[in-house]
Design a protein around this nucleic acid. Structure first.
Lengths: 343, 343
DNA sequence: CTGAAAGCGCTTACAG
DNA sequence: CTGAAAGCGCTTACAG
């Protein structure tokens, strides 16, 4: 069976003794086309099961109604939520999403970007890979006149639209909350410090301690080492210190917070009475553990929506020829106080 | 600032006093082109920061090197993992992914499909929405000669390639395992029964009981009602029965299993001694609770890889004109035995 | 090995 | 309101 050809506007035109021009106009709801023939054309197109060729239309119009997204990992909660948020908002406007994952590798990130440029996407949304600090490929996006929007992990030096989480502020609030609850020796589980977002969380932790006149004890700061096998022992060591902490801010994520909870339970350390615990990212399970775990919600879906709205707004501005200043929108994460820090 | 035009093969040709034909051939590594000029062309293209226009190339070639994916929700673990798997395999071959979410709504699913048809994707991968049982839009995909691959939630009546999970077999194994461990009154937490996959899990549960000569007690089968507020009370009711279960198969997912664990702990019911628990889907947290929770791994990333491999294989067959029979590949989920069912 | 030409399916100024 | 024509950027048989 040879692939039968698709119906084109020429086929419709031929059938109705019209020209492709008219068919095109009718189908695009353009003015200057007789209402009766328009009706006829639309009806006939449906009958013939006509599907417009977006490729041709986009080539002609010089835009693709497509947004490209590059994230380190598609199947990481935060990112898949952001993508879902972007999808929701852009879909209504008839935009498509092309999605790539960099796998945290700079090489692949460059390749993804090139593919998206070749695809003539109208906009590229990216959260940069942890590896590499050469941003020539992103500059290339700008040079090709494609709107670039960075989020979460951003290259500061590039002047682009940015949507970020205020990690420092959120961390500061979380730690301040714990101090208010009477915790005095608060430990920090670091996330990977090569990423800015985790450095910000650490900075927030330190700022909170200082603001409340508490000392920063290096002994209580645990470097990121969260393979499954290392997590437990690290926490155990912490809790076995001569002067153990009375609270732990698991700034990496809720999984590390869960490990803390498990180790504490296992050692007979009561949460929240003897040990406060706060995680990060509001994974679904934090609500259902006992005690439930305090954490920080990043509003990831909302971040996605913000990104797309920012894009559409920017497009409007360009049409109006308003000067567009590169701006950064900071989303305030929300501290979710649950039982694990309430005493 | 007006958008500057991109470099085309004509620009390169002009610069080198050649024709677009030659440039095209050189850039596509085609034969019949002098090695020296080829080198020159490639070098010049790079210097001019030339990016091919995939839109034009695809229009001309009549294919898009793009695969469309439609899932109920992008940000659901299972689906985002499948997508990641597809991405990994297709990326190497230079394919792009256009991703849509149906939000479980039939209307939106139809719209997604139409968009993908218009985009001239080469293949559509879909897991159908829970709503609706009219599959005209999928038939339309086939009619447009686009390869259709269904996965997980499939419309049986359509003759397409299918990649499914053997939910029944996996559930049967899980329940049999619990029986082997000495549990005798095993309860079932159902998933939404309008979806085939959850009906299969229930069937596996019943089959296991029957195979081991155990009675099926309707009292022990709890309908899906997993809003956060309803989960706890439902489990509590179950455990307060005059003849309570000594094990629970949370066939819906690991979150419901976690609820069971929390309620049991709260009631002083020892897991696994007095109550066995098995979840479904191998969420990351199941490994780190105490006791760790037995569950079923669906190999979701592998499912994604299988889907793309199936597609490439099918393409090869078509090129060889081999008769292509619609086939179903069944992935065997893996029972992960942990502490919550080991006594 | 290279060039001239047609065409993928559409849109859109330009006439009438 | 409708048509004829050009062109988006590329690829590919057809000549030479």
């Amino acid at each position: 069976m040879k692939p039968k050809k698709r119906v084109t506007i020429y086929d419709i035109a031929r059938k109705l003794n019209l020209t492709a021009s008219s068919v095109s106009r009718a189908l695009n709801n353009s003015s200057h086309v007789n209402e009766a023939t328009k009706q006829l054309i639309v009806k006939t197109a449906a009958e013939m099961n006509y599907k417009p060729n977006t490729l041709a239309s986009n080539l002609r119009k010089g835009k693709s109604q497509t947004i490209g997204i590059v994230v380190p990992r598609i199947n990481q909660n935060f990112f898949s939520n952001v993508i879902a948020g972007i999808e929701e908002t852009t879909y209504q406007r008839g935009y498509n999403l092309i999605i790539c994952q960099s796998n945290e590798a700079h090489d692949k990130e460059v390749q993804c970007i090139n593919t998206l440029i070749n695809q003539h996407v109208d906009c590229i949304v990216i959260s940069v890979a942890s590896e590499g600090n050469d941003y020539a490929h992103l500059q290339n996006v700008i040079d090709h006149n494609i709107q670039l929007i960075q989020f979460d992990r951003v290259a500061d030096e590039l002047e682009t639209l940015k949507v970020v989480n205020d990690n420092q502020q959120a961390s500061m609030e979380a730690v301040s909350h714990m101090i208010t609850q009477g915790y005095k020796r608060i430990a920090l589980l670091e996330g990977p410090q090569n990423l800015d977002v985790f450095r910000q969380r650490k900075a927030g932790y330190i700022a909170a301690l200082k603001a409340h006149g508490l000392p920063v004890d290096e002994e209580l700061i645990v470097a990121n080492s969260w393979t499954k096998d290392l997590a437990g022992p690290a926490v155990r060591t912490l809790l076995n210190l001569p002067q153990p902490p009375d609270a732990i801010f698991a700034s990496r994520d809720d999984f590390s917070a869960l490990v803390v909870l498990e180790v504490a339970t296992d050692m007979g350390v009561k949460v929240p009475e003897q040990l406060g615990i706060c995680g990060y990212s509001n994974e679904a399970f934090t609500e259902v553990t006992s005690p439930s775990i305090s954490t920080i919600d990043q509003h990831s879906v909302y971040i996605g929506k913000t990104i797309s709205n920012l894009y559409f707004q920017e497009m409007d501005n360009k049409n109006k020829d308003t000067a567009s200043t590169p701006k950064t929108i900071s989303i305030k994460p929300k501290l979710i106080i649950r039982s694990s820090t309430s005493r």
